[in-house]
């Protein structure tokens, strides 16, 4: 791993680590959204050969995640591999961000009396605090839907019920929506920024970078915000 530490030592290396872990986390967010869209799938899912009434699609999807890879892997095996990769990515992403923040503080020990003007986007300025909000949100989110400790009447495996139960409380939905907006800004800047950090730049596709960042930031934000809104408006109900 010494090549990694040699790379990581430099600021450019740290940013590359943030970009790569960012891509992993972005991939997860996209998959997560695709999975959650099953909330809107009408009817019930029946596995091949199953005779009962079937389960809601999103619950079936949850089941799939827990058992994917069987029998080659034990139950929850693939899920845990996935979780570990995500956890490592999150830790590296935050650790690098923390160290870079310290570096940036050290680089300007004395602040300006007259605050420097902002000439570019505010998205980039919200990156750091946006990240903190997102982290707090993720912790709550895990307690809500994975551990279930803050979910009223949590039923393991009944994703549909848990979602509706949680989002029926307006303040939870509000928090969720705000967190998704922070995520949107974070993604917008992050998705553009990673091209810079990894040096993926070419006159032929440079103008796509911003379009790509815009598009995905909006898709993810709109998609994720739609869930609590759907519950609050009664579109999705028990």
């Amino acid at each position: 791993m010494s090549w990694f530490s040699a790379l990581y030592r430099s600021a450019v290396g740290k940013k590359a680590v943030m970009a790569v872990t960012g891509i992993i986390l972005f991939g997860f967010i996209v998959l997560h959204l695709i999975g959650n869209l099953k909330l809107y799938e009408p009817g019930l899912y029946k596995a091949p050969g199953e005779t009962g009434p079937g389960v809601r699609y999103i619950n079936a999807y949850g089941l799939f995640l827990r058992h994917v890879g069987e029998p080659a892997l034990p139950a929850y095996g693939a899920l845990w591999i996935f979780r570990i990769v995500l956890l490592v990515a999150v830790i590296l992403h935050i650790w690098a961000a923390w160290q870079l923040t310290l570096m940036s503080r050290a680089a300007r020990p004395r602040a300006y009396a007259s605050r420097p003007k902002i000439h570019t986007t505010y998205a980039s300025r919200t990156l750091r605090w946006g990240g903190v909000i997102i982290l707090l949100f993720v912790i709550y989110h895990l307690l809500d839907f994975t551990a279930g400790t803050v979910n009223p009447g949590f039923v393991e495996g009944d994703v549909y019920r848990n979602v509706v139960a949680s989002f029926s409380r307006w303040y939870v939905s509000l928090f969720y929506i705000l967190a998704q907006m922070a995520l949107g800004l974070h993604l917008y800047h992050g998705l553009w920024s990673l091209f810079q950090s990894l040096g993926w730049n070419h006159p032929r596709f440079n103008h796509w970078r911003s379009g790509f960042a815009h598009a995905f930031a909006w898709i993810i934000t709109i998609g994720n915000v739609s869930f609590p809104l759907a519950v609050l408006t009664g579109l999705v109900h028990k």
Binding site: S10, K15, L100, S104, I118, H119, S124, L127, W192, Q196
Partner: peptide, 14 residues
């Protein structure tokens, strides 16, 4: 650049 104590680039484009 790092050795001199400059900060890092977070692509703000300022």
């Amino acid at each position: 650049m790092d050795r001199e104590g400059f900060g890092y680039c977070s692509n703000h484009a300022e």
